[in-house]
Design a binder for these strands. Structure first.
Lengths: 129, 129
DNA sequence: CTTGACTCTATAGTTACTATAGATTTTATA
DNA sequence: TATAAAATCTATAGTAACTATAGAGTCAAG
């Protein structure tokens, strides 16, 4: 299949696919006579692996490492484990931050009654302090 | 005070301060004979307003709008309110996403017992599916 | 008077894409 | 078969919010 079809079946944009290729996350596809990329089901699998990792917010560089590790099935998977745990730590940290954000924003929103003027606005006041 | 001192008292890096100025979030400071930026306490207040907004993850463009609004105290603050509510929606959305992420990552981490090989690694398997 | 710390501007790099321009190839229609 | 439309190609620039660098100028202390 050509890149447009791969794009549709995978849900990745055409530019993103080409970008992943440039970044070394996808193996170089065959080319047609006219230099169009030609993909197989294996390519789709590769792309889906990347997509799944991205849906977990794993950075492209880490995904690259995971792909390399995948190709060494006899090695210990402790590095894979470490990578996932790091990602989990990050997510936990970000969640804590977001909770704090949410609290402050809610508080702020509650101090504004919308027929006030900006001069009397509780939101602006709390941002100023 | 010069930019280095403002940087220390505010906790913003020197480059970030200059960047905010370029982006129009801080008013242009006085300059010394030798063209060094000279800041007042008012400048510090301005910078702290920006910092506070940023700590709430409000984008620079929105902060710019808030600053403009701040300077029109007689207008209705409904737009301020709207902006904060939008920000709150964003935070809530992101929190939901993160919760889902966290679940999947935890699940994955639990399928790996670290003395396995990559070939048998539950993490890689689940990323593959 | 010179050394080191600080500051200046301008520019490039970061991440993960998205968007564009201009050229080429393929497919569909007349 | 001619041609128009759709898809693809590469290369490059833009996005957000900074951070880092280069190369030059300024200032305070010894």
């Amino acid at each position: 299949m050509k890149i447009g079809e791969l794009s549709k079946t995978s849900g990745c944009s055409v530019q993103t696919i080409r970008y992943y290729e440039r970044e070394g996350l996808l193996s170089d596809p065959e080319r047609s006579e006219g230099n169009f990329r030609l993909y197989s089901d294996k390519s789709l699998k590769e792309l889906e692996f990347v997509k799944h990792c991205r849906s977990l917010d794993i950075p492209l560089n880490d995904i690259k490492r995971l792909i390399e590790l995948k190709n060494k099935p006899e090695e210990s998977c402790s590095s894979v484990n470490k990578l996932i745990k790091q990602q989990l730590d990050l997510v936990n940290k970000r969640m804590k931050e977001l909770k704090a954000l949410k609290n402050e924003l809610q508080q702020m929103a509650s101090t504004c009654n919308s027929d006030n003027t900006i001069g009397a606005c509780g939101i602006i006041k709390s941002l100023d302090s």
